[in-house]
C-alpha cells in the first residue's frame, strides 16, 4: 500500500499515459487520436515536472537583492525548462496534425480512420 501511496503522483501519471495510449490505438476518429497523443505528451511532461519537486521546496526565484540559500531548498528549475521545450513541440505537433486533419476532411469528408483507409486504397 505504501508503494502506491508514497508515489501516488507517479501512479496517476502512469494511468494518464495508459489512457493516452488506449485512445491512440483504439479510437477510430483521427481527432480523438490526436487528442490522445496530447494526453500522452501531458503525462510525460507531468512526469518530468514531478522529478524536479522536493518536499517543502520554494520556487527557484530570487527577488532582487536577496542572496540564495541551499540548493536543496529550491525546486529544480531544469525540468521545467526542458518541459517548456516539450510543450512547444507538442503545440507544433498538434498544429501540424490539425492542419493535416483539415486537409483530410476536405478530401475524404470523414475523420473515421477505417473509412479513410478504404477510400485511400481506391
Amino acid at each position: 500500500m505504501d508503494a502506491i501511496a508514497g508515489h501516488l503522483n507517479y501512479w496517476l501519471i502512469a494511468v494518464l499515459f495508459v489512457v493516452g495510449v488506449y485512445g491512440l490505438a483504439f479510437q477510430d476518429n483521427l481527432l480523438k487520436k490526436l487528442m490522445a497523443l496530447n494526453v500522452i505528451s501531458v503525462s510525460t511532461i507531468a512526469f518530468f515536472l514531478n522529478l524536479g519537486q522536493k518536499v517543502g521546496a520554494k520556487a527557484p526565484i530570487l527577488p532582487g537583492g536577496v542572496k540564495g540559500g541551499e540548493a536543496a531548498a529550491y525546486a529544480n528549475p531544469l525540468p521545467h525548462t526542458l518541459m517548456l521545450t516539450a510543450i512547444v513541440v507538442g503545440v507544433a505537433t498538434t498544429g501540424v496534425g490539425l492542419a493535416m486533419i483539415y486537409r483530410i476532411f476536405k478530401h475524404y469528408h470523414t475523420l473515421e480512420e477505417s473509412e479513410i483507409l478504404k477510400g485511400m486504397r481506391e
Partner: peptide
C-alpha cells in the same frame, strides 16, 4: 491526398515514439 493520410498516421506513431 494519400500522402496527407500517410503523413498523419506517421505523425501519430512518430510523436508517440519521440
Amino acid at each position: 491526398h494519400q500522402g496527407v493520410v500517410a503523413g498523419f498516421r506517421y505523425l501519430l506513431v512518430g510523436t508517440a515514439a519521440g
